[in-house]
Design a protein around this nucleic acid. Structure first.
Length: 479
RNA sequence: GGUCUCUUAGUAUAACGGUUAGUACAUCGGGUUUUCAUCCCGACAACGCGGGUUCGACUCCCGCAGAGAUCACCA
């Protein structure tokens, strides 16, 4: 049987790191088994619906390369993929349940139900609606909620992550199937849709584990085959012991894109948070993940989100793309991340800058801070030179002389490339008798006035003869 | 409160009865002719507690503790 998985978010906002794993794992599993992943939008709660959230979801999945085989935009044989457009299907299943005596219309007013609930809370006893099941129930019609008629018993099932599970009758209840407004609840709708769409693996957060017996009873009552159940542990907030949520400042996945994180790195990090293949590999391509993925190696406990490691993975990916695919490949990813002053500079020049700075980047947006002096004259800040830990023991005239000698040497060069420059710098060290830390710091700071920069000969090469010498002269005059 | 789940260094994890408990991030130190970064080398650092079973337990069993989830006309 073909493996069919699904990602079924509700359009209530952006996708954040805490919940995107329930898209990644279904995708990996489906691809590995040459199956399909369905994207289904669970928009049955009109109150929480957020305009544009569906697009946000699609955007996130597309960015990560989690292409769904059926769903919005691409369509498919089980359309529509918005639950709000599937009313009739749910109602038909509901009627089946009524006919089988397993569902009833419940006229009890919400205030009354609230009373029951309070009563139970006061008595410190679990609230089970089935204990308050009304005797006379009207015929089901619009405007009256429809409830499941639970027939509690022991249930055993297997969860692909959590293992063999069992639960007693005390957790099964008369859950609402269809709300007063005619929309189904998640509890009902997902069962119907998963069956209709041929979903073989239901992957979702562990929070659904405790309601599983209710779902199992629903499968039985509807004579549906149970799909494989896969509970995914939560991703925990960096601090405290709670699952990562928007309230803990969980950023949207795509916000990281805007901050210069590569999608490869994001996917890599997230996939390996709470899953590993038993090897010591840390960096995975999407294809490698698809190949290596397995349900039984998903961790059973929650994993804490660690942004530092994400950034490390991102740095690895930046270097990997450069080293394996070349400047061009990395450069095409950097478009929005250059400082404004770089705008009117030619691509070739920016690529040269990129090739000498790329291994210093943790995120692509570091380019903004780290490369400005390649495109505009840095502001001369003599204090940076005078206070420098290697230079502060030199007098101003010593600094001036050093600069003058450097200018003389560099301007005598007939060629201006990294090797020639390195030779010249070495000679300069000999001629002046200075330590590298002194001479190089002075030149480096005079060129950039930046806290850090690439190797000196490379910086000089890319900056070019005219700009380099002009900057050195400016500083020599200023001292 | 009921039910369910989880528990290896600061973090993510490996181990599937016998290892000096491995790896990565982070931290700290050192090296690569300046800085920052990369890269390399090194250090620090963990089996929640208590009982069993066993020649032997991180691994199996039972308690306890701690943490989490759930108990909606939300998903």
């Amino acid at each position: 049987m073909e493996t069919v998985t699904r990602f079924a978010p509700s359009p209530t906002g952006y996708i954040h790191i805490g919940n995107v794993r329930s898209a990644i794992y279904p995708y990996l599993l489906a691809k590995q088994q040459n199956g399909k992943m369905i994207l289904r939008i669970e928009d049955t709660d009109r109150g929480r619906y957020v305009e544009g959230a569906t697009e946000l979801i699609e955007d996130t999945l597309e960015w990560l390369g989690l292409n769904w085989d059926e769903g919005p935009i691409v369509g498919g044989p089980h359309a529509p993929y918005f639950q709000s457009e599937r009313q009739e299907i749910y109602h038909e299943y509901a009627r089946r349940l009524i006919a089988a005596g397993r569902a009833y219309a419940d006229p009890t007013p919400p205030e009354q139900i609230e009373e029951y609930r309070k009563e139970c809370n006061a008595k410190k006893v679990p609230f089970l609606y089935r204990n308050f099941r009304p005797n006379d129930t009207p015929e089901w019609q619009p405007g009256i909620p429809l409830r499941f008629k639970a027939e509690p018993k022991d249930y055993e099932w297997h969860d692909e992550v959590m293992g063999d599970m069992h639960a007693g009758p005390e957790v099964q209840d008369d859950i609402i199937l269809i709300k007063q407004d005619g929309f189904p609840t998640y509890n009902f709708a997902h069962i119907v849709d998963d069956a209709e769409m041929g979903v073989t693996h239901v992957m979702r957060g562990v929070e659904y584990l405790s309601s599983t017996p209710n779902y199992l009873e629903l499968y039985d009552a509807l004579k549906l085959e149970r799909p494989k159940l896969v509970s995914l542990p939560h991703i925990l907030a960096p601090q405290g012991n709670k699952k990562l949520g928007k309230r803990d400042g969980a950023k949207s996945v795509t916000e990281y894109r805007d901050d210069g994180v590569l999608s490869e790195a994001m996917l890599n990090y997230l996939a390996c948070l709470g899953w590993n293949d038993g090897t010591e590999q840390e960096i995975y391509t999407k294809d490698e993940l698809i190949k290596a993925f397995s349900l039984d190696r998903i961790q059973t406990s929650g994993a804490r989100y660690d942004e530092t490691k994400l950034l490390w993975v991102n740095g690895q990916w930046i270097r990997r793309i450069f080293d394996e695919q070349g400047v061009e490949a990395l450069y095409t990813r950097t478009a929005e991340f250059w400082p404004e002053v770089a705008n009117n500079h030619p691509d070739d020049y920016k690529k040269r800058v990129l090739s000498i700075i790329y291994d210093r980047l943790k995120t692509l947006s570091d380019l903004r801070e780290m490369t400005a002096y390649f495109f505009a004259e840095p502001e001369v800040d003599l204090d940076m030179i005078i206070q420098n830990k290697f230079l502060k023991k030199l007098s101003e005239s010593e600094l001036e002389n050093l600069l003058k000698q450097s200018i003389e040497k560099l301007s005598s060069l007939s060629e201006w490339d990294a090797d020639v420059l390195q030779d010249a710098l070495n000679q300069l060290l000999q001629d002046t008798g200075r330590k590298p830390a002194e001479l190089f710091s002075l030149i480096r700071l005079s060129l950039s006035f930046a806290p850090f920069s690439p190797a000196l000969n490379l910086t000089l090469e890319v900056l070019g003869r005219d700009v380099s010498l002009a900057r050195l002269n400016t500083v020599a005059r200023a001292i």
